[in-house]
Design a protein around this nucleic acid. Structure first.
Lengths: 247, 247
DNA sequence: CGCTTACTTGACATTCTTCAACCGCAGTGG
DNA sequence: CCACTGCGGTTGAAGAATGTCAAGTAAGCG
């Protein structure tokens, strides 16, 4: 266990994210920082949040990738969102509640829980904080909604292209892209569980994107060769990510 | 234009819904009622909310069915949720915002907009109101998430069965079922746009459900013959609808 | 009556899944 | 150091699920 302080730079990611959604003054930023609980370092594939348990408060991903998911009776799993650094796992901070969906790390990850009481206290004193949090929640909802649209209307290739565009943009916001490349420690099977495709088909879909000169993949790193073409193929419009949400 | 009063019973639907999510005293109920703006009566297929415009405040469906949807560049439309009486179209009431998705009536419908300022005022004085509204928003989110799961993991038959179970349960909550039957003024094409299926396949899917003795349909009325079998087929678990959310 | 819209049907094409096998690589234990 | 193992990725072949096209029917409506 470490304190939030010892995490250094990574702890800033949440603030970076939230600042996009409203003017957080230095005071509010400091207050939020004070709310942080103990930082957890988790290996890949560990349960960060268990569905059905009471929520201890919002949990923020500081590094690594996690996913929110639901298990079906037939054993299938649907990943309903990827949680990147700066993303918040559970948003229900104004009302006590049960965790509705499990969250698991997909890579090694660090996260920090913000104890409910501390946050609600802070929110009472700093209304801007509530606003920023609600906006952040809305942004995550928009991503989920776009997945729904992908699953409903886009073909496998379009879906995969869209997902890659989304991840590129989201990672870029938190400074985790390197030119047109980003590290994506997911298996093809996990990609399939999120996009409603079989592993085999994910494989062939990625091959097609490569064959068309849109992307390259190597060592879990995705390189987007032609973003314009990729986003065109995906009918990707970054507006929903709220990149311009800064007012 | 009519006042909320003249709508009579229907205006209660929202209160009925919200009361499930927390103890709303008579005072809070009255306050909320006071917030209602003018009631609009809309014919089928009219735009209730236009994407891209600034939101005037939460809009509540009082009668009829509407849908939230997104148009893709290729002309396809994905319906992302059905809005039933008591449902709230736009939830962004604490922060000014742009409407992200259009909302159209699918049948004749009445709705009422709650002007933003009035509501935020009321919320400041009655924190329980905020809680109830946030819980209602969470409930709607849960439905959307379940659609994502359907589109990702369920077959056409399972999806359709799941949707029918969902609609039955949601309509039951607001008292709009008649035994095991409910009125569902949607076309098969609209059903397809929500479940990511072609119209033709929706037709065949419904036929299969009928052939298996799970449902009957007649005059836009769905009769569920064997709910247990239907929900089994759909892997439907009503828990996500928050039927037990009353604390 | 003629039009339009929704529903239905059949034949066929496409997309995606399933099954089974194989490859390469990293870790592990002898 | 090497065989063994397991996981992730890749491939081919076959089949199931779903989409598309085209035509026809039925009901509602001006």
């Amino acid at each position: 266990m470490q304190t939030a302080e010892s995490v250094g730079v990574t702890g800033e990611t949440l603030l970076l994210r939230l600042s996009r959604f409203g003017p957080l003054g230095p005071e509010e930023r400091e207050v939020l920082r004070q709310c942080f609980g103990a930082v957890r370092h988790e290996p890949p594939h560990s349960e960060l949040l268990v569905a059905g348990r009471p929520s201890a408060g919002p949990t923020v991903i500081l590094s690594g990738i996690a996913c929110r998911f639901t298990l079906l009776r037939n054993g299938k799993r649907q990943i309903t969102s990827y949680l990147l650094p700066g993303d918040i796992c559970e948003f229900r901070f104004l009302t006590n509640s049960i965790i509705e969906q499990g969250v698991r790390s997909l890579s090694a990850a660090t996260c920090v829980t913000i104890p409910q009481v501390r946050l609600t206290d802070a929110c009472e004193r700093y209304p801007n904080l509530v606003k920023a949090l609600l906006q952040a929640a809305a942004a995550q909802e928009a991503v989920t909604r776009e997945w729904l649209i992908s699953l409903g209307q886009r073909s496998a290739v379009e879906r995969m292209a869209h997902l890659l565009c989304e991840l590129y943009c989201r990672l870029k916001i938190v400074g985790l892209v390197n030119g047109m490349s980003f590290h994506l420690p997911l298996t093809q099977s996990e990609l399939g569980e999120s996009m409603g495709l079989s592993t085999v088909h994910v494989n062939r879909t990625l091959q097609e994107l490569r064959r068309n000169g849109l992307i390259e993949t190597r060592d879990k790193t995705v390189h987007i060769i032609d973003f314009a073409a990729l986003s065109g193929r995906a009918m990707f419009d970054p507006a929903y990510l709220g990149t311009h949400a800064v007012q």
